[in-house]
Amino acid sequence: MLRDITLGQYYPAKSRIHQLDARVKIIGTLLYIVDLFVVQDFIGFAVLGAALAAVLVLARVPMGYIFRGLKPILLILIFTFFLNLFMVDGEVIWRIWILKVTKEGLYLALFMSIRLVLLITASSLLTLTTRPISLTDGLERLLSPLNRMGVPTHDIAMMMSIALRFIPTLLAEADKIMKAQQARGADFESGNVFRRGRALIPILIPLFVGAFRIAGDLAMAMEARCYRGGTGRTRMRQSVFGRVDYVALGACLVLFAAAILLRVLY
């Protein structure tokens, strides 16, 4: 069940989106996230939603896979929805017991939920369609201007890619530990908040110990292969911007401009 989490996972496929330069995808995703916060009405969301849908179709990642990734945030989504629904003051349209639903509340609840769904889908699409290696490379090259100011860009990019790479490993580890403690009669599903919190200790401690063990092993393996950090390191795959990349980047910029324009005009 923990293994269902697709956060930060790569979905192997051959598609236009997969083949794009990682830099385009990183910039595109960032612009899209800004778009989501610039836009103030449902027309804007409709445009942004349509754009995301087009990318989804091009990316050839099955819908079921993406929805599975959304499942873990469903709780947060429902929570924000109802919080907004009941907590916002304004014109009352419904009254259930002591709770009242206002027009503004309903509007805001829908608005926030759509924003959240688009945000998560767009950002997971970045990692779903980009190999961790390409992502690191792209990130490193985007950050490289900072290198001159003494920021260790290579190390930052490497750390991020290792973190991404180890999400599934740690989830698998957590899954195994959870099962092992369940086999000893541990119960994570019943009791109040405090009991459930305490029930996590038998999982968290071995998980921490395991994470350090894995990190130690990885460091050793990297050193054994003479890894010394970024200086003097060359790339196996030199990515160059192609025409498709420019087109895609252009499309992102146009969408960005449109979002700004909509905001300014209305």
Partner: peptide, 20 residues
């Protein structure tokens, strides 16, 4: 489930990683 686990005990591979 507790009933099943009372009857069937399972020791996982590398069980020492579950000590806490």
């Amino acid at each position: 489930m507790l009933d099943i686990r009372r009857h069937v005990g399972l020791v996982f591979q590398y069980p020492e990683y579950q000590l806490f």
